[in-house]
């Protein structure tokens, strides 16, 4: 019993330390590298406007385009690492924002609904729920063979319930041990257990996979 409590504390500490480091890198990319690139872009545009020679102007234009692409990639990378919306606006806006990037990355359409009033959640719990949703959606892109996903959030006074359904090819739960993403699923369950919540997975071949997450508020 004592061993299990220590183990939980250690898992929780490792996950939290990892999240803090990821957040630091994400902010550094967004506020540091991203801002510097923006300053370079603005400077180059000023130079470009004052140049008459066509070939130099074209060359500068190519450079500004390259910087724009790099800025966009830095922004996406930063958001992918740690969504700024999570601390600034909360879980629901962070999920909405991630879904936009997800659809434009994998081409999978996600229908999202939220019932009830969004409640404030501890940052370490909301990041756990966010990461579980992120892992579920990544698994769907990798294995589910689907074009549509549905996510429902239900807020009550004491609990947040999230269900994710993928309408995909599904799999035999009994085969989970042999499944390539069983470790990912185990991590999702572990993360939710550490928050005091739960993560349940059910699947039917040819019908799809359902992930039910619950978090006490």
């Amino acid at each position: 019993m004592e061993y299990s409590a220590t183990r939980n504390q250690m898992s929780s500490y490792i996950i939290q330390a990892q999240e803090e480091e990821i957040k630091r890198i994400s902010l550094e990319l967004h506020e540091g590298v991203g801002q510097n690139l923006f300053s370079i872009l603005t400077g180059l545009k000023v130079v470009e406007s004052g140049i008459k020679e066509d070939h130099v102007k074209n060359h500068l234009h190519e450079m500004t385009q390259l910087i724009e692409k790099t800025m966009q990639e830095i922004r996406l990378l930063s958001v992918e690492l740690y969504p700024p919306a999570l601390t600034a606006l909360g879980l629901l806006p962070a999920i909405k924002s991630y879904i936009k990037v997800y659809t434009s990355t994998f081409g999978i359409v996600v229908e999202l609904s939220s019932i009830g009033e969004e409640k404030p959640i501890l940052e370490q719990n909301s990041i756990a729920v966010f990461r579980v949703c992120q892992e579920a959606l990544t698994n769907i892109a990798k294995y589910a063979d689907t074009s549509n996903v549905r996510i429902d959030l239900k807020w009550s006074n004491s609990k947040l319930k999230i269900s994710i359904f993928d309408f995909g090819r599904g799999f035999q739960i009994e085969d989970l041990e042999k499944n390539p993403y069983s470790l990912g699923i185990a991590t999702m369950k572990e993360r939710m257990l550490l928050t005091g919540g739960q993560c349940e997975i059910s699947s039917k071949i040819g019908e799809g996979t359902s992930i039910e997450i619950s978090l006490p508020i």
């Binding site: 692409k69 790099t70 990355t105 081409g107 074009s147």
Partner: peptide, 25 residues
């Protein structure tokens, strides 16, 4: 803008390609 998208596909299994934006690098 800098976005690169799949504008044409043949032999595709679905229309996901239409929604995918290629990420630089």
């Amino acid at each position: 803008g800098p976005d690169v998208r799949w504008h044409y596909a043949s032999g595709n299994l679905n229309d996901k390609y239409k929604r995918i934006t290629v990420r630089f690098g």
